[in-house]
């Protein structure tokens, strides 16, 4: 590709010491992420996908290798600007919001830290963010315990938007949610990506989710990158044995089911994407 990648990893390696042994969680991985694309990282637990995410976010420094953002190497100690531009949506929306702080306070933090808007404007910015993720602005003063899992995940997404981030690392953002809510959150993410020109790094073990949202897929096994291909190509014609076994493990959908889904999705669209406050 000709355009400069927004994020690239060069020979990324990360070791963990467990007692006296050293375990190589991520082994010499290199990849590029283009602006506006959604790169899925799939693999079993322990394949190193979350470790890669943590290195991208600057939570762990790489043992060796480098990461660059817009062609510039990311330092081990991230600046506030890097923090602003690379954000995270976590797997568990129950723990990712502070139970003792209001929704507004959680969103305000991002605005305050990065000085977006003036103090007077920020309450309105919080309201706008909530609207943007399909929540009623009245949610601002509630505590996270008054929200459902899907609603909390929307707040977590709003928090990443509040940073005006360019790259969002989505660490299994839908795996703690039920299927219907999952579909809505994926749709919301896809809409936001187009609207804000976001770049997604979507970490998941769920290949059916990958097919819906990802442009390209990176398959990890034992800390190594075994295959990196366009989503369609990967599903049509996986080159690696391991990828083939992952795909064949996805539950098969019959033609009847596909038809049923088509009919059901029309009725679902009628009641809108916004969940009821009690849901």
């Amino acid at each position: 590709m000709t355009a400069q990648p927004i994020l690239s990893a060069h020979n990324l390696t990360r070791d963990f010491r467990v007692g006296k042994r050293t375990i190589r969680a991520v082994d010499d991985i290199s990849f590029d992420v283009q602006k506006g694309e959604c790169l899925a990282i799939v693999g079993e637990s322990g394949s190193g996908k979350s470790t890669v995410a943590n290195m991208i976010l600057g939570i762990h420094p790489p043992t060796s290798g480098t990461l660059s953002f817009h062609g510039e190497e990311l330092p081990v100690k991230r600046t506030l600007l890097h923090r602003e531009k690379i954000q995270l949506v976590q797997q568990n929306p129950l723990s990712s919001l502070n139970p003792r702080r209001s929704i507004a306070a959680s969103l305000r933090l991002a605005l305050d830290v990065h000085k977006h808007g003036t103090r007077g404007e920020r309450p309105q910015m919080v309201q706008k963010l909530l609207e943007e993720v399909g929540l009623d602005p009245s949610f601002a003063n509630r505590s996270p315990s008054a929200l459902s899992g899907g609603q909390r995940q929307r707040v977590a997404i709003a928090r990443a938007l509040a940073c005006q981030s360019e790259v969002v690392v989505l660490d299994e953002p839908t795996s703690a949610l039920d299927v219907l809510v999952q579909a809505r959150i994926l749709r919301l993410l896809d809409d936001l990506r187009t609207m804000h020109g976001l770049t997604f790094i979507f970490i998941t073990h769920d290949l059916s989710v990958v097919r819906n949202i990802a442009d390209r897929v990176a398959v990890f096994q034992y800390g190594k990158l075994v295959e990196l291909a366009d989503t369609e190509a990967l599903f049509e014609n996986p080159t690696e044995e391991y990828t083939r076994s992952l795909i064949s493990a996805v539950p098969v959908v019959s033609t009847e089911e596909v038809e049923l889904r088509g009919r059901l999705s029309k009725t679902e669209a009628a009641d809108g994407g916004v969940e009821s406050p009690g849901a």
């Binding site: 600057g58 939570i59 954000q87 976590q90 568990n92 919001l97 139970p99 959680s106 991002a110 830290v113």
Partner: peptide, 21 residues
């Protein structure tokens, strides 16, 4: 807990995380 990680990733200071979160 995830909310501490979230605050760190946002870039909040240690004082904020300790006393406000």
């Amino acid at each position: 807990e995830g909310y501490v990680l979230a605050a760190e990733v946002i870039g909040a200071g240690k004082l904020h995380i300790i006393f406000r979160e």
